[in-house]
Write a protein that binds this DNA or RNA. Structure first.
Lengths: 203, 203, 203, 203
DNA sequence: CATGAATGAGCCTTCATTCAT
DNA sequence: AATGAATGAAGGCTCATTCAT
């Protein structure tokens, strides 16, 4: 007899996490109700308690699931250190990453709940730390190689990441009309053509 | 059944708005309860309804009170157009402004509730629009004068404002340990010495 | 110098009682709020407490003002005992009386609150008692005179008053469509031509 | 946090409706609180919201449940048209029906809330319409058969139903002392012996 | 594995009432 | 004579959570 693959095994847990992330991002932790999440996941509110001890944990799990996803990308690019080329690629990837739907959900959540929920903040801290730990030696190396001028790596980070964040927040999250129509590439190009040269050593 | 403190007739409305802003920033719209806000303002929850029709309106009023406060500063500096000097001053002032307690409260609220509350988003949009309307001609003028190279003013805005936002969000709102100890001046200096030169025309 | 008649002295108390009656009839005791009544009377809610000790008393006063107004009419007609002629006149007057706006307000209130408010019920009891006290001897007299057949005066009362009440309740208070268009006169005529003959002794 | 009585799974919904009807009749819609109703039904106030979307709907459901219960009786009696005999029976049944506890609750509610709540009024309208639709041809038929004299069926209705309503309202709802002790039979007899003969054609 | 039924706690809101002015 | 400001008490409703089935 043939194996019974049956219709795709409904991964309830994943479905719930998915619905949860969506609703937490859309309405915030308090305003998103268990009932709503459950409905979106196709189960009953009571069912949530089979998979998670409580709403708080469901929330954490949903966020954890997606925070830190960008770290491997950074790892790859810094490891294969091709200098400025890697940096350019990194900026491109970062911009694309934070333009993705799920990333924006997480970002929304982190910006909204991070300031008041230690665990959320911590998750973001961990992620940032991981990235900076890889980026810092990379930048130091570039400085030593005379490719960029000596700066506090944290400031360099802000200078490069800030505009990306600004673009995502103003254009996507707050949807400021004036900022609509600015392409991801335009932002990255501006970084590459303006900020990056500024970072280079005066000849 | 209803005694009442008397003596110095304080500005209840202002006190309530103050407490409201504080608590909304600290806990979010949903999590901040009327009772809490009232207590912080030294009145009863019922008193809130004497001054505002409901929680929602109190919230809006509290936010409106402080959104847009930075606009006059931009107006002053762009009007007295002293070129790059004005821009430098503007960056310094912006950094200081968003480091102020009240501004950070508003920022927290806007980042948290803006994506889901049209009125909040609109308030921020209006503010940004006002600033950009003054900044755009200013930048165009600088381009015409050959002081900076030709760029989309919106991208210039992102390049300059992004790092400020990044600093405030990462260092102050999310309190990422790695970012602690970075002074406002350092950020502004980095902008002035790195991004700004990058904006200048190639010699 | 001429007398100073000034603009009609605002009889606040009367205005308040008026507004109160209107609103109590329209929305019921609980649903009619002090603020509403006050607004309708052109004063502040606090002002009500200058004229009445509390909402309850205002309510009673408003009802008392108008309950029993029909008694004098009955008194006149039974005193000047012109037999059946008086009875006919009485029915006509009763029908007209309860068709009047204020009477219907009171009736609405009595039917709604009477069953649960002893004072209201009592006011109605007193009124009914007064009427029956005058009507009973009148009917007894008519029986003795052989004008109507011997019946329990209370039943006679029901037979004659019931249809009037039915008309007012069904047509005016509940506004049953089917009953619209029935004139007061038609009801009175039916009573005079049908019930009254039935009351007469068999020839 | 939420234990619960179990054992005989009683019909909660019915129990709630029952308690609701009782309390709404006794204290009116506004004055009857959810907590009270719930207590009377042996559940928590929150449980009401499991079965009904809100207080208003609970109210409607409770009333609807019992309005119109008398219609089938009328149907039976008019269908099996035994002329005046049927009418006599109908009056007897009507009197008994409206003397029943539940009917009086509903009547209280309709008289109290009908004038201000369209849905309640409508329910009563529908019921009355149903009855009149059966009664009208019945009366026309009796007229045609020369059993009663030609009258507007609506007036005939008032003449017969009015005294019943009067009896119930004055004796039972308002509990006017003077009207106590009047038996249902006495009212029906009066109708049969006085009003009915009046309705008959003059010989 | 999932649900239906139910609850306790708490929140927003309304309202009658007070009292200094 | 009347009001503005404020309150205490309560009410309707929501929601996370539980548990027997």
């Amino acid at each position: 007899m043939a194996p019974r693959p049956k219709n795709p095994p409904p991964d309830r847990r994943a479905e719930i996490l998915d619905a949860a992330l969506r609703l937490f991002a859309a309405k915030g932790f308090e305003a998103a109700t268990n009932a709503e999440i459950a409905r979106a996941a196709g189960v009953t509110a009571a069912a949530l308690y089979y998979y998670f001890p409580n709403k708080e944990e469901l929330f954490r799990a949903a966020v954890r699931e997606h925070v830190g996803t960008f770290v491997p990308t950074v790892a790859d690019l810094t490891r294969a250190d091709r200098g400025l080329e890697s940096l350019r690629e990194l900026l491109r990837r970062a911009m694309d990453f934070f333009t993705d739907g799920k990333s924006q959900m997480v970002l929304k959540i982190v910006l909204a709940e991070g300031p008041r929920r230690p665990e959320i903040r911590q998750a973001w801290i961990d992620q940032t730390a991981a990235i900076l730990e890889m980026l810092t030696p990379f930048i130091m190396h570039a400085i030593a190689a005379g490719q960029i001028r000596p700066v506090d790596p944290r400031l360099a980070f802000m200078l490069l990441q800030g505009p990306i964040m600004s673009a995502v927040v103003l254009r996507d999250l707050l949807q400021i009309p004036f900022m609509q129509g600015i392409e991801n590439d335009a932002v990255v190009d501006a970084l590459l053509e303006i900020t990056l040269p500024g970072l280079m050593p005066n000849r």
